[in-house]
């Protein structure tokens, strides 16, 4: 059996990659994809834990997370389109009209 630690490490790694991509990438769509990557990393850890506890609840959670992620994608893309229409750019560094 694959020890659970491996799954957790993989999940953490994916999560970090996602977070890192969020911080580094300049294209809004890519940044958005990195959020999806983070959510899916969490999905992985949920499934791993569900397997460990021999319970199904974790896997149900995963379904819900996927649904929510899809909804978020819809909303997010709509917002990105709104931004694109007004600023004509997909470069996240250029969306900085409001400064502190």
């Amino acid at each position: 059996m694959v020890p659970i630690a491996y799954y957790l490490v993989l999940s953490a790694l994916l999560f970090s990659i996602g977070a890192g991509a969020f911080l580094i990438k300049r294209n809004i769509i890519t940044v958005f994809m990195s959020i999806e990557l983070m959510l899916n990393a969490v999905n992985l850890s949920f499934v791993a834990f569900a397997y460990q506890w021999h319970a199904i609840r974790g896997q149900i959670f995963v379904f819900f997370v996927m649904v929510v992620a899809a909804a978020e994608a819809a909303v997010g893309l709509a917002i990105i389109i709104a931004v694109y229409r007004t600023r004509n750019t997909l470069n996240v560094d250029q969306i900085d009209l409001m400064k502190l």
Binding site: A19, L23, V92, D96, L97, K99
Partner: peptide, 14 residues
């Protein structure tokens, strides 16, 4: 340094 930049925001969160 003054940025309205979302990446720096995320950096602060992390």
């Amino acid at each position: 340094i003054q940025s309205g930049n979302i990446r720096s925001y995320a950096g602060w969160l992390a």
